[in-house]
Structures are given as C-alpha cells and as structure tokens.
Amino acid sequence: MGKPLINTKIIQITSGRGPAECCWVVAQILKHFLEAVNSKGIDYKILQREKGIENMTLHSVTVQLKGNNLSRFLSQWTGTIQWIGTSTFRPQHKRKNWFVGLYEIRKSEQFQILEKDITYQATRSSGPGGQHVNKVSSAIRATHQPTKMQVLVMDSRSQHQNKKIAKARLQEKVAEVQLEALQSGIKNQWKNHLSIERGNPIKVFKGKDFKRNTIVKDFKKQRCALKNELRNQLKN
C-alpha cells in the first residue's frame, strides 16, 4: 500500500459582519477547532489573525492545515457554526443565537518556492569590510523568476553560505507577498459570505463553557410521530 496523500488546505473562521459577540465566538471556535486538529495529528499554522474590538475576540483567523484526509475532517466543520448563549458584552441583550462561519479558502498560490524558479548571480560585496571583501564576488543576488522578486545577500565571505541565506530570505519575501494576495482574495471571497447562512448550522455550541449541543429535536419529532402512528394502528 502506498503512503497516504498529504495535502494542504487553508480555512478561515470569521464573524462576517457580526458584532463583538460573534468575534468572541470566533475565538472560542478557534480553540475547539485546533483541539480537534491536534487530536487528528494534523499540522497547522496560523497565517493571519484579525483582532476584534473587545479583548480576547477575533474578527477572523486564517489557518493553514497539512495532513491526510483533510476533506473528510473539514466536512465536519465547514459551514455555519451557531452559539446559543447570553452576550458577555451586553447581558441585557435579548438575542441568544449567534452565528459565525468556517470556510475553506480555495487557493492557487503555493507557499513553497522551487529551486528551479530561482536564479543566482554572484556580485561583489560592498560596504564595511573594505578592500578585502571587494576582491571576491561573494555576494549573491537571488531572483524568483515567477514573481521577479530579488534579494541581495552579503552576510558571509562564503558564496555558498550567502546562497543558502538568499534562498531562505527569498522564500520569506515571496511567502509574505503571497499571503497578502491570499488575504486580499479572502476579503473578495467574503463578499459572497456577508450573509452567513443561519438555517442549517454544521455545529451548535451553547453556554459560557461552550459545550457542544447535541441536536436531538428532529429525531424526537420522528420518534413521537412513530409512536402516534403505532398507537393509531393498535386502536384500529
């Protein structure tokens, strides 16, 4: 049997245009979500957090996941999440149902640059070090061809060492730009999610302790209907 396929996905938990209470729910959902991620042995990296107005709240958070069977795992989380409880910030508020969204971000960007996409050019170092440095072309200019981004490294007198440093810095620079583009894409994508679906939550939590709420009301109705049907049959 072959090894399980390891893939990468990016999700965002967001309050949409919800108030501070929804931002509080986002922070709580993040804790529960990461606990579930860890229990499944999935690696994660938080790419972006947007804090809410109140302390300990998040307007949104973007998380990168890496592991196998991610689609199956996310199918249990992706969608609208409901919290039933009294507002922490407005205890007299009549509203008891608060909704946030957890969605997968479809991405085309790759956060890992390839060696074949980098070109290196040796150049003479300049600055402190004087004539001894300038005698050797030890500095390295690295260019990421797909994005045309460049870095110049002259940290070491070793060309080989500067090349390694250049690749690492170029990776950081490209990833930073790609993340900015991803975040911009998230905002554009959220134009389609400004109205979070409230009718069919994928998960329901309740109370200040944020316990999972097992939804049994639909099954209860079915059981009652079956009982009534059985009674009617016995009467006849």
Rank of each mutant, 00 (worst) to 15 (best):
Gly79Tyr: 02
Thr88Val: 06
Glu54Ala: 05
Tyr44His: 08
Phe89Trp: 09
Leu102Asn: 08
Ser60Ala: 12
Glu50Ser: 14
Ser60Lys: 13
Gly85His: 01
Ile29Gly: 00
Lys40Ile: 09
Gly101Asn: 05
Gly79Arg: 00
Ser87Gly: 09
Gly101Met: 00
Trp77Met: 06
Gln64Asn: 06
Ile42Leu: 04
Asn38Thr: 13
Phe99Thr: 09
Gln64Ala: 03
His32Lys: 12
Asp43Lys: 15
Leu47Phe: 03
Leu102Pro: 11
Asp43Gly: 10
Phe89Ile: 10
Trp83Gln: 08
Glu54Thr: 07
Gln64Lys: 11
Ile84Ala: 01
Lys94Thr: 04
Leu65Pro: 15
Ile42Tyr: 11
Gly41Ala: 02
Thr86Asp: 05
Asp43Ser: 13
Gln48Asp: 13
Thr88Lys: 14
Ile46Tyr: 02
Val100Phe: 03
Ala36His: 11
Ile29Glu: 07
Val100Arg: 05
Lys40Tyr: 07
Asn69Asp: 15
Arg72Cys: 10
Lys40Asp: 05
Asn68Met: 04
Leu30Met: 03
Arg72Ala: 11
Leu47Ile: 03
His59Asp: 12
Phe33Lys: 03
Glu35Arg: 09
Ile46Gln: 01
Glu104Thr: 15
Gly85Arg: 03
Ser39Asn: 09
Thr57Cys: 03
Leu58Asn: 10
Glu35Val: 07
Phe33Tyr: 09
Asp43Met: 08
Phe89Asp: 12
Lys45Thr: 06
Pro91Arg: 00
Trp98His: 12
Trp98Thr: 10
Ile81Cys: 01
Asn68Gln: 14
Asn55Glu: 15
His59Ser: 05
Arg90Met: 08
Gly41His: 08
Lys51Trp: 13
Ala27Lys: 04
Ile46Val: 11
Lys96Met: 05
Ile84Phe: 03
Thr86Arg: 13
Gln92Asp: 12
Gln92Phe: 09
Arg90Val: 13
Leu70Gly: 14
Thr57His: 02
Gln48Ser: 12
Tyr103Cys: 10
Ser60Trp: 08
Ser71Pro: 12
Val63Glu: 12
Gly85Val: 06
Val61Phe: 02
Val37Met: 07
Asn38Pro: 00
Leu65Ile: 13
Leu58Val: 07
Gly79Leu: 01
Phe99Glu: 04
Ile81Lys: 01
Asn55Leu: 14
Pro91Lys: 04
Thr78Met: 07
Asn69Thr: 13
His93Arg: 07
Asn68Leu: 02
Leu70Pro: 15
Lys94Pro: 06
Phe73Glu: 09
Ile46Phe: 01
Asn97Arg: 15
Ala27Tyr: 05
Leu58Pro: 13
His93Gln: 11
Lys66His: 08
Phe89Tyr: 15
Phe89Glu: 10
Ala36Val: 06
Gly101Asp: 05
Trp98Pro: 11
